[in-house]
Simulated scan of single mutants.
Amino acid sequence: MLELATGSGLAMAAGVNAWIPLLLLGLLSRFSDLLTLPAGWGWLENPWVMAILAVLLVLEMTADKIPALDSVNDVVQTFVRPTAGGIAFGAGAASETVTVEDPQAFMAGGEWVTVVIGIVLALVVHAAKAGGRVITNTVSGGTAAPVMSTVEDVAAVGVSFLGITLPFLMIPVLILFAIGLWLIVRGVRKHRRMKQIDEAYGAAT
């Protein structure tokens, strides 16, 4: 189902940056023919809502590029990004896009189901992002934070657009994400083991 792919792309983007997919949904619905939000999600294209989302986006993008502060931001966003993912998935899956003209059949199973899927998917992506940031900050001493954050922002915009315009391409993206997640989990575990070994060695000496 293309609706599922669209929602997945937006929820994954929210797991990286909560505000990019929500602002993108509002902008595209209001100013383009690429996407039309259903009535229940029309508030996303309200000018005041988009202005608030834009301010929040600037704040998060700034905080995420400052070493140490980026880790604090990830902790705060643990609650924000899954919520945004649920909203993005629900709104995206219910919208008419250039590839989906009648999403109502998909939504017949219940709108709350798509919101829950989005929350879970965004939470997993957020956990992977936070875990990966811990590794890169440790290896680089925090100097890689601005570069990593910029790459993540670009990826969030790209995946959001991909989910809306070419949702069938989300399948290989999801596969690559699963592989990347496995590598990150493996890296985090290795980092913890090395830290435990160093602490044990320090205590012994």
Rank of each mutant, 00 (worst) to 15 (best):
A13W: 00
L10G: 08
L23G: 12
P21L: 15
V16M: 14
A11L: 04
F31Y: 12
L10S: 05
L34R: 15
V16S: 08
M12W: 09
A18V: 07
V16K: 04
M12S: 11
A11H: 02
G7Y: 07
T6Q: 02
V16F: 06
N17H: 13
G26R: 07
S32V: 13
G26W: 01
P21F: 06
L35W: 00
F31K: 09
L24T: 14
G15A: 09
V16P: 04
L23W: 12
G9T: 09
L23I: 15
S32W: 04
A18N: 02
T6C: 00
L23R: 15
L28Y: 08
G7K: 00
A14H: 02
A14D: 01
G26I: 06
S8L: 14
S8Y: 10
A14N: 01
L28I: 11
W19M: 14
L25K: 04
L34F: 15
L23E: 13
F31T: 12
S29C: 02
P21T: 15
R30Q: 08
A14L: 02
A11C: 09
P21N: 15
V16E: 05
L25Q: 04
L22S: 11
G9Q: 12
N17P: 02
A18S: 13
S32A: 06
I20W: 03
A11P: 01
V16C: 12
M12H: 09
L10H: 03
N17S: 14
G9L: 05
G26M: 05
S29R: 03
A13C: 11
L25E: 06
L10Y: 07
T6D: 00
G9K: 08
F31E: 05
V16W: 06
R30H: 04
I20A: 08
M12N: 09
L10A: 13
S32I: 01
G15S: 05
G9Y: 08
D33Y: 09
G15K: 00
D33V: 14
S8D: 03
S8K: 02
T6P: 00
L34T: 15
L34N: 15
L27D: 03
L27T: 13
S8P: 01
